[in-house]
Amino acid sequence: MNLNLEKINGCTVLFIKEARIDAHNSGELKEAVLHLIEQGEVNIIVQLEHVRFIDSSGLGALLSGYKNAAAKSGKLALANMQQQVLSMFELTRLNRVFDIYADLNEAFDSEA
């Protein structure tokens, strides 16, 4: 899975450079986020601009990251979500769990 990690404004931003998150690559995403949290990066923003499709395993991988970050008093938030992807969060009510930001600037303003 093509992932980029950047430190911006003191936040750890994980850019997902894939159009599709499904059961083929969601395990890798879950492991990458878990690895970050184990290294002490517990405040993470996942940037989803390139993602146009997510399945239940992809939602599960992000939920896993959210729970693991929360267990270490951190937070995993989401930014730049495409409408169709957002509709999957709405259908599963996961939009009530995650903080979802229109873009990174909004995320930085809220997380600051």
Partner: peptide
């Protein structure tokens, strides 16, 4: 059905198909 108040990682696939 998934427990929306206590979401878990798995069990959403069949929910999507049914819904």
């Amino acid at each position: 059905l998934p427990d929306f108040d206590h979401p878990k990682e798995g069990g959403m696939g069949i929910f999507f198909i049914r819904t």
